[in-house]
Write a protein that binds this DNA or RNA. Structure first.
Lengths: 143, 143
DNA sequence: CCTTGACCTTCCATCGACTGGAACCCCCAT
DNA sequence: ATGGGGGTTCCAGTCGATGGAAGGTCAAGG
């Protein structure tokens, strides 16, 4: 299988697949012409990676999960720990985003949004009180 | 005021303040020794930026918001649009993260997390069905 | 046999929003 | 003069790709 076949089957772009080889997540063979020759096992790994990434696991988490997946003697506790740590991160991000949403929704609601200059959004940004709390450490910032 | 004073008052690290000057968000004066000399107006802008960033606005949004803040003849509609677009982004991210949370919570719940190798988390990642939907476009990915 | 076009390859740069660190300058107190 | 705590610049790195340039390969059609 060439790269565009695996791309189609795994749903990952060719660029991403090359990148995953670069960082050592997969090790496809090579044809005599230099083309990558993907085995079924490579395909499966890529599909695995795609799903793990879709769940928001970091690349390093993916690397660890892939190793555990391959290791038939793994302890499910190891997988469990990675996943529940990640779940905790996600929960924190949701909380952060919800706080932003509350504040923003309130401001947006209060702003007339017409041709006049009066704007509670700018007033609030100028004076403070975006929320009660500090900007939290686990930073949820724009994509 | 020197940089560490403004840092203390605005809550932004000196590095970030220099960066904001670099990208043209603020234009502090300079003392004869080359030190940045911050006026009150610079301080206010930095505080404004800190709050806008805490609400998750991108730097480019912040630039636009700052310009509108300075413009006493602005139309609140412009501010409103930026904020409500951003609010929509946040809502999408929350939805994505909640979908991840559901799936992950289920998997974590199903995994024994002991010394045995059997692990529904890995099984699921290996076989698919992370959720009903495609990984959405507005990618929420790890920090 | 030659060309065309769709593949494939590598390598380098860019995105966002900082952050770390090196190397160096400045100012004040001892 | 020396030490320590400011400040300055500039370069590299983070994370996870993605865009693009420059060039090699292959199969089909004329």
């Amino acid at each position: 299988m060439n790269i565009s076949d695996v791309a189609a089957k795994s749903g990952l772009p060719p660029k991403t697949i090359r990148y995953y080889e670069d960082i050592g997540l997969i090790k496809p063979l090579r044809d005599s012409n230099g083309y990558r020759a993907f085995r079924d096992s490579d395909m499966h790994k890529l599909a695995f990676l795609g799903r793990a990434r879709a769940l928001g696991f970091t690349i390093e988490d993916c690397r660890a999960l892939l190793a555990l997946w391959e290791d038939k003697a793994r302890a499910s506790a190891d997988v469990h720990r990675i996943a529940s740590d990640h779940l905790a991160q996600i929960k924190m991000k949701i909380a952060d985003l919800q706080a932003m949403r509350e504040t923003l929704a309130h401001l947006v609601h209060c702003c007339a949004g017409d041709e006049r200059p009066d704007c509670p959004i700018l007033t609030s940004l100028g004076q403070g009180q975006t929320s009660g709390k500090e900007p939290s450490r686990h930073a949820v910032r724009p994509a």
